[in-house]
Nucleic acid binder design. Structure first.
Length: 425
RNA sequence: GGAGAGGUGGCCGAGUGGUCGAAGGCGCAGCACUGGAAAUGCUGUAUAGGGGCAACUCUAUCGAGGGUUCGAAUCCCUCCCUCUCCGCCA
């Protein structure tokens, strides 16, 4: 959420930064509301101060022996009642304005960071670097072909169990998924991340805190009888892990990694990526999350991205780093690096991780502060996939495929999987 | 699902209409004492919003919302949550 003070003092700045995202908004009306709300608050608190004085005086007079029903006390009571009515009127107006303000502000996306390149769409994203040597030979299979051939999962029967865009992993496929989750968590905890296994049903406040609500309700699955949703990413429970807390400054940064299944409706993607593991309503992901001091968030962003990249490098998977332009930035992000893994069967780079710094945007929504010296300040939050597990499996299958039909796995995963190969050697 | 208890500051815990943002204790910080420490003593120690260069000051907040009152942590109503026991269950 954006800062109300910024709206009161410098709405032009907000407008110009949102314009970089392609949003044209006139904020003069909202600014007026914000200022009026502030004025009313000042009037009201002055009245309340007077009312408090009167309350005290009545008590003092009565204790001093004044007649509780006498004229002097009655005059104070009358004034007290008049103030009460005035205050009630002001409060009502204030509440209405506050609601309007909040409804408006909660729907605005984050302001892009200064470093984020301007652009209108995906096409304007900037490639930052490449790592590894992509296999280019022809005749390579796509991961869904390999998976079906080796019996790693059941596509059609999964529709029977749930519906389309769900997958059932079997045998070596299930085992490899489990191995990858363990491998990734071990890599991250070795770097000092605290492993978290959070609830994957989350309440509305949690989704609002991290930015999925109110704008993106249609992207999540909801439990009809409860205020609970299936989490679309571990970013949601991890943000709420410290919601409405004040963290001592010396504890920062707090760094967490979490494996969770993730659930997304994938509305509007009909017909895209219908085969295999790329786009599912339920997928596994290991997420990295930081709460850090504002002074360190830029540095932290590079670190969290490097931590995601190191998984790809340890798994010997060629990738490239893309910096998202303002037009392609997610709702809560100020700056984002996407990592795209090379899929030689498909002959394309595909997103496998997204590493974002959100500044104080989520912290303000979720009221996550830290205490340094006298006052409190909002923390900065960062999140990054480290990595999307199903897409990692897809990348391993395509990159490791051998002429004999088997799949050779990188050395790092072999101890977890129990073998360095899937299929006949 | 049935029965009961309870929600007060970082924690424990007092407080049933009046100057209470809230006793006391613990914890924490600073100072004193000490060669250093322990013990002891003194002082300080919530959050949000407003005003002020600052010292400071005003308003709100004792689970949430509403009501009674000049005045509510304290009385009334509604809701939420937590805990304990029983039942069921991985």
């Amino acid at each position: 959420m954006l800062d109300q003070r910024l709206l009161r003092d410098n709405p032009q700045l907000i407008a110009s930064q949102l314009a970089r995202r392609g949003l044209t908004i006139d904020l003069t009306g909202l600014q007026a509301i914000a200022r009026l709300e502030r004025d009313l608050e000042e009037q009201r608190s002055a009245l309340q101060a007077e009312g408090n004085q009167i309350g005290k005086q009545v008590g003092q007079r009565i204790q001093a022996g004044a007649d509780p029903k006498g004229e002097e006390v009655q005059a104070l009571r009358d004034r007290g009642n008049a103030i009460k009515q005035e205050v009630a009127g002001l409060e009502e107006q204030e509440k209405a304005l506050e609601q309007q303000l909040r409804d408006a502000l909660i729907a605005f996306p984050n302001l892009p960071a200064a470093e984020t390149p301007d652009g209108a769409s995906e096409a304007d994203n900037v490639e930052v670097k490449r790592w590894g040597m992509p296999r280019q030979e022809s005749g390579l299979q796509e991961h869904w072909q390999i998976g079906e051939r080796l019996g790693l999962w059941e596509a059609e029967r999964s529709v029977r169990i749930a519906q389309s865009r769900f997958i059932t992993l079997l045998g070596a496929g299930a085992r490899l998924e489990r191995a990858l989750i363990s491998f990734m968590l071990d890599q991250h905890t070795a770097r000092g991340y605290t492993e978290v296994l959070p609830p994957i049903l989350v309440n509305s406040a949690s989704l609002t805190g991290s930015g999925q609500l109110p704008k993106f309700a249609e992207e999540s699955f909801r439990c009809a009888d409860d205020d609970l949703w299936l989490t679309p990413t571990a970013e949601v429970p991890l943000t709420s892990l410290h919601r409405e807390e004040v963290i001592p400054a010396e504890q920062l940064p707090l760094r967490y990694c979490a494996y969770t299944p993730c659930f997304r409706r994938e509305a509007g993607s009909y017909g895209r990526d219908t085969r295999g593991l790329i786009r599912l309503h339920q997928f596994n992901k290991v997420e990295l999350y930081w709460f850090c001091h504002p002074a360190n968030s830029a540095d932290a962003h590079e670190q969290i991205t490097r931590h995601a990249e190191s998984i790809l490098e340890t798994l010997e998977l060629p990738y490239r780093r893309i910096e998202l332009c303002t037009g392609d930035l997610g709702f809560s992000a100020a700056r984002t690096f996407d990592l795209e893994v090379w899929l030689p069967g498909a002959g394309a780079y595909r997103e496998i991780s997204s590493c974002s710094v959100c500044g104080d945007f989520q912290a303000r929504r979720a009221a996550i502060r830290f205490k340094e010296g006298k006052g409190t300040q909002l923390v900065h939050t960062l999140n990054g996939s480290g990595l999307a597990v199903g897409r990692t499996m897809a990348a391993l299958l395509e990159n490791g495929q051998q002429p004999d039909g088997s799949v050779l796995l990188p050395a790092a995963i072999a101890p977890y999987f129990g073998s360095d190969r899937i299929g006949a050697a």
